[in-house]
């Protein structure tokens, strides 16, 4: 028990990195998701193919390898630094989950009933108005639960930044284990509980999102 009280503040020092990376990479992922999700529905073939390429590359390879590419390989190959390791972590996680979420955006927009497009056209809306006033608000409601789920995934994904020397909660846990081998279960137990506590509000938001989604769409 003494160990628990001793370890918690030590591991909690990593919270600011875990939380800041979570928030920044989630926001970045959302932006990528809407941007590339809409691009994949574009009438322009080149735009469509290009974003399709991005999505498949980032969905098809592992996040940890992408992280190492951005952190180690690209700076060596091209002689450019992509920013601090905090930024590299945010980029990698944001690009990876942005690719997954763009599929959520795309499929949600496509699943709005054809009749909605037709009614909007019959009311003489322009393509942009039709999207903004009729299609998008309905699609967003359908996206909410999936966005909640993926945000929880992003939280868990942030633990990978400990591998590029970022001092998040897992990193401090690993450090502690170096000095207290015997207490390994307690240390990782605390790490586990901290992640779970961070996930609780996200789980709550996801449930809320599911409710909103149910209410707004069915006609």
């Amino acid at each position: 028990m003494d160990y628990v009280i001793e370890f918690i503040p030590q591991i909690a020092r990593g919270l600011n990195i875990t939380i800041s990376v979570l928030i920044a990479s989630a926001l970045f992922a959302y932006i990528m998701a809407f941007f590339s999700g809409l691009c994949r529905l574009s009438n322009n073939v080149i735009v469509r193919k290009f974003t399709g390429f991005y999505v498949e590359i980032f969905r098809g390879t592992s996040l940890i390898v992408q992280l190492f590419w951005l952190y180690y390989a690209i700076p060596m190959l091209f002689g450019i630094q992509l920013g601090s390791n905090w930024w590299v972590g945010v980029f990698a996680i944001g690009l990876n989950y942005g690719a997954y979420l763009s599929e959520v955006v795309r499929t949600s927009i496509l699943s709005v009933a054809q009749g909605q497009y037709e009614a909007a056209t019959a009311l003489n809306m322009s393509r942009f108005q039709r999207m903004r006033i009729v299609i998008f608000p309905q699609a967003v409601r359908m996206m909410l639960p999936e966005f909640g789920n993926y945000t929880i995934q992003i939280l868990k994904g942030t633990s990978l930044v400990s591998l590029i020397a970022m001092s998040d909660i897992l990193y401090y846990g690993d450090i502690l284990r170096g000095s207290y081998q015997q207490q390994t279960p307690i240390i990782y137990g605390i790490v586990l509980v901290l992640y779970f506590i961070l996930a609780l509000p996200l789980i709550w938001l996801t449930k809320k999102g599911e409710k909103i989604a149910k209410k707004g769409v069915a006609s």
């Binding site: 009749g115 909605q116 009614a119 019959a122 309905q138 769409v217 069915a218």
Partner: peptide
């Protein structure tokens, strides 16, 4: 804009 239409399946905006 001169034409309006009513559909078999209503197509009201549910939101």
């Amino acid at each position: 804009g001169d034409i309006g239409m009513v559909f078999q399946h209503f197509n009201l905006f549910p939101h």
